[in-house]
Amino acid sequence: MKLRKVTAASAVVLALAVSVTACGGDKKDDASGGKKIKIGIKFDQPGLGLKQPDGSFSGFDVDVATYVAKQLGYQPNQIEWVETKSADRENALQRGDVKFIAATYSITDERKQKVDFAGPYLLAHQDLLVKKGSNITKGTDLNSKKLCSVTGSTSAQNVQKTIAPKANLRPLSGYSECVAGLQSGAVDALTTDDSILAGFAAQDKYKGQFQLVGLKLSNENYGIGVKKGDSTTVDKINKALEKMVADKSWDKAVKDNFGPARYKNEPAPKIGDIVK
Rank of each mutant, 00 (worst) to 15 (best):
residue 4 R to W: 06
residue 6 V to T: 06
residue 6 V to W: 01
residue 7 T to I: 13
residue 9 A to P: 00
residue 11 A to Y: 05
residue 14 L to W: 10
residue 18 V to M: 10
residue 19 S to H: 01
residue 20 V to P: 09
residue 23 C to T: 08
residue 24 G to F: 08
residue 24 G to N: 12
residue 25 G to L: 11
residue 27 K to V: 13
residue 29 D to A: 14
residue 30 D to W: 11
residue 30 D to S: 11
residue 35 K to S: 13
residue 35 K to M: 07
residue 36 K to P: 08
residue 47 G to S: 11
residue 48 L to E: 13
residue 48 L to S: 12
residue 48 L to P: 03
residue 53 P to A: 05
residue 54 D to C: 02
residue 55 G to Y: 05
residue 56 S to D: 12
residue 60 F to M: 09
residue 61 D to E: 10
residue 63 D to Y: 01
residue 64 V to M: 09
residue 65 A to V: 02
residue 69 A to D: 06
residue 73 G to Q: 08
residue 74 Y to W: 04
residue 75 Q to H: 08
residue 83 E to M: 08
residue 84 T to V: 15
residue 84 T to C: 12
residue 86 S to Q: 12
residue 88 D to F: 05
residue 89 R to G: 04
residue 90 E to N: 12
residue 91 N to R: 13
residue 93 L to V: 06
residue 95 R to L: 15
residue 95 R to N: 14
residue 97 D to G: 04
residue 100 F to W: 05
residue 100 F to M: 07
residue 100 F to E: 13
residue 100 F to Y: 13
residue 102 A to E: 11
residue 106 S to C: 02
residue 108 T to K: 07
residue 109 D to V: 04
residue 112 K to Q: 14
residue 112 K to L: 10
residue 112 K to C: 08
residue 115 V to T: 12
residue 116 D to H: 01
residue 117 F to Y: 15
residue 117 F to C: 09
residue 120 P to A: 10
residue 121 Y to V: 11
residue 125 H to T: 08
residue 125 H to C: 06
residue 126 Q to A: 05
residue 129 L to W: 03
residue 132 K to S: 11
residue 133 G to W: 04
residue 139 G to T: 02
residue 140 T to Q: 09
residue 141 D to E: 04
residue 144 S to D: 15
residue 145 K to N: 03
residue 146 K to D: 11
residue 150 V to A: 11
residue 152 G to Y: 05
residue 153 S to R: 06
residue 157 Q to H: 07
residue 159 V to Y: 03
residue 159 V to R: 03
residue 161 K to G: 00
residue 162 T to N: 14
residue 166 K to W: 00
residue 170 R to G: 02
residue 172 L to S: 12
residue 173 S to H: 04
residue 175 Y to W: 08
residue 177 E to R: 03
residue 181 G to L: 04
residue 183 Q to I: 01
residue 184 S to D: 09
residue 185 G to F: 02
residue 186 A to Q: 13
residue 189 A to P: 04
residue 191 T to N: 09
residue 194 D to V: 00
residue 195 S to V: 06
residue 196 I to F: 07
residue 196 I to P: 06
residue 203 Q to E: 14
residue 204 D to S: 14
residue 207 K to A: 15
residue 207 K to V: 08
residue 210 F to M: 09
residue 210 F to T: 05
residue 217 L to G: 15
residue 218 S to W: 03
residue 220 E to Q: 12
residue 220 E to N: 12
residue 221 N to D: 10
residue 224 I to L: 14
residue 226 V to W: 04
residue 231 S to K: 14
residue 235 D to Q: 15
residue 235 D to V: 05
residue 238 N to V: 07
residue 238 N to T: 09
residue 239 K to I: 01
residue 239 K to R: 10
residue 244 M to I: 02
residue 247 D to I: 00
residue 249 S to I: 00
residue 251 D to T: 03
residue 251 D to Y: 00
residue 253 A to I: 05
residue 258 F to G: 07
residue 258 F to M: 15
residue 259 G to E: 08
residue 259 G to M: 11
residue 261 A to Y: 02
residue 261 A to L: 05
residue 263 Y to V: 12
residue 265 N to I: 01
residue 267 P to N: 10
residue 269 P to F: 04
residue 269 P to E: 06
residue 272 G to F: 01
residue 275 V to A: 10
residue 276 K to W: 02
residue 276 K to Y: 05
